[in-house]
């Protein structure tokens, strides 16, 4: 079930999204972050939420660059009925995959030498919804969503 979902998202086409950024170099992380910030501003997110979205995208893009070398960050606006509009963030790569998804969501867990190990769990806390699909050898997909709040 999860594997199907993973393959489906990995195979998704660019035109289904508002913004697609390929991550292959460190500079691409900044590009992804900038695009996410712009989209969030366009959608009328508050300054705090725009910063949260940009930070989450930055973390996800960094994970792609670090562990899978390349992948894609895909963003799209979702106009949904009662919960209001939201932004969907998908980070997809065909990297080594994560054997134990629960473990990587533990605060402080990292396989990377100079890292705080709070990236993914941090993203989960920054977003309204968060799901991760991964299979060793196939890749990893993170689907997160942030709703726009009205003040």
């Amino acid at each position: 079930m999860d594997l199907e979902k993973l393959e489906a998202i990995l195979a998704s086409q660019s035109h289904e999204f508002d913004v697609v950024v390929r991550i292959a170099k460190e500079e691409d992380i900044a590009v992804a972050r900038q695009m996410a910030k712009k989209l969030a501003q366009e959608m009328g997110f508050s300054l705090a939420d725009t910063t949260k979205v940009a930070t989450a995208v930055s973390e996800l893009a960094r994970n792609i660059y670090r562990y899978a070398q390349q992948g894609r960050i895909m963003l799209r606006k979702k106009e949904e009925g009662k919960s209001g509009p939201s932004m969907e963030i998908i980070a997809a790569d065909q990297g080594p995959g994560i054997p134990d998804v629960e473990l990587v969501l533990t605060k402080g867990y990292t396989t990377y030498e100079r890292s705080l190990g709070i990236g993914l769990s941090g993203v989960k806390r920054l977003m309204d919804s968060f799901a991760i699909y991964s299979a060793p050898g196939r890749g990893t997909v993170v689907v997160a969503e942030k709703r726009r709040r009205r003040f």
Binding site: A48, T50, T51, K52, T55, K107, I118, S121, G122, L126
Partner: peptide, 13 residues
């Protein structure tokens, strides 16, 4: 900044 403060706390830095 305030928005950065909130993000940092959520991230756990």
């Amino acid at each position: 900044k305030p928005e950065v403060a909130h993000t940092l706390v959520k991230l756990g830095v």
